[in-house]
Amino acid sequence: MKIRLENIVKRFRDNTAVDHFSAVIESGELVTLLGPSGCGKSTMLNMLSGILYPTEGKIYFDDDDVTFVSSEKRGIGLVFQNYALYPHMTVLENICFPLEIQKVPKAERIERAKKMAELVHVDTMLNRKPGQLSGGQQQRVAIARALVKQPRLLLLDEPLSNLDARLRIEMREEIRRIQLETGVTTIFVTHDQEEAMSISDHIILMKLGVLQQFDKPQYLYDQPANCFVADFLGNPPINKVEAKVENGKVILADGQDSGVRLEGHDGEKVWLSFRSESVLYKPESELRAKVILTSVMGKEKITSFDLAGKEVRGYFDSSLDFERGEEVGIGFKKTGVFVFNFESGERYL
């Protein structure tokens, strides 16, 4: 099912949680809503599920306007951050519940629930109560319950946030597998960029209720729309130094020429941001940086420098040997280097 969001605004009294949000989510895709805590992800999800209604704007499922349709009638599956399983029912009863509401005959109900339980690998614990399951198992039951009614749309609100690192990776792969197997349009909320990068077809990155960028994961990383997107994605985080544009040259705070060229913004204060993998070792370069620390990570070596008073990091071949305090010449690759407006974060390069 295709979802169209048109200019969605949600205000709580004077606090705007979602601000003029527009997006089109194609049928069968897994789209991640990504953003820092409090940016309006859950609010957005709750409007999609009908738990909240938007203050302004329209929501379309395919061509139907569902903006003010109540949750019961939307035919969606929702997995809550805290799973929200019914504690007095067994796993099987929990999975059956949505079908029971739809008055599916009992035999069919149980058969479908069992199939779904198999899909998420909880078929060996059908008679247990949620309290007797681990967090990961509860989460899988919650997914089964959301999927069993064959929803047109599956919504997951930070479903992995309570799990340990290993189970998280396992579960996100499982979610992706189930999603591909069933082909259900899915919206997945997280504030973990790595999670978002690894399972999504597209990512929507939000900040303070405003959509920042809606793109394929790699594109978000390679071509950030603004400074916030560049800062948010990447591990280690992108390097960021203050700079000024003079005669088309990007000049660092200590007066060094970065070697980056930018037309048309003379006299403006900017951020020069670059990925660690975009730093090059250039002994003859005029741009000098002082080595602070190097640490070897297998084939590569990550080195931190003092560049114009800021600590920045770069990846180098581990055959290179730097002394602490040594001044080295560095340069930048063509990709992974960006210039942003200092205040607004608007991207210039």
């Binding site: 599920s49 009908g50 738990i51 109540s70 949750s71 019961e72 009638k73 939307r74 969606i76 599956g77 929702l78 809550f80 951050q81 805290n82 929200a84 019914y86 007095h88 519940f97 949505p98 509401i101 739809q102 319950r145 009614k149």
Partner: peptide
């Protein structure tokens, strides 16, 4: 009882009456 149980039931298509007696 957490709100999310009610919301989950609503999303599952459950009426208030049914939610009260069943959950």
């Amino acid at each position: 009882v957490p709100d999310s149980l009610y919301q989950a039931a609503k999303v599952d298509g459950c009426s208030d009456w049914k939610y009260l007696w069943r959950v």
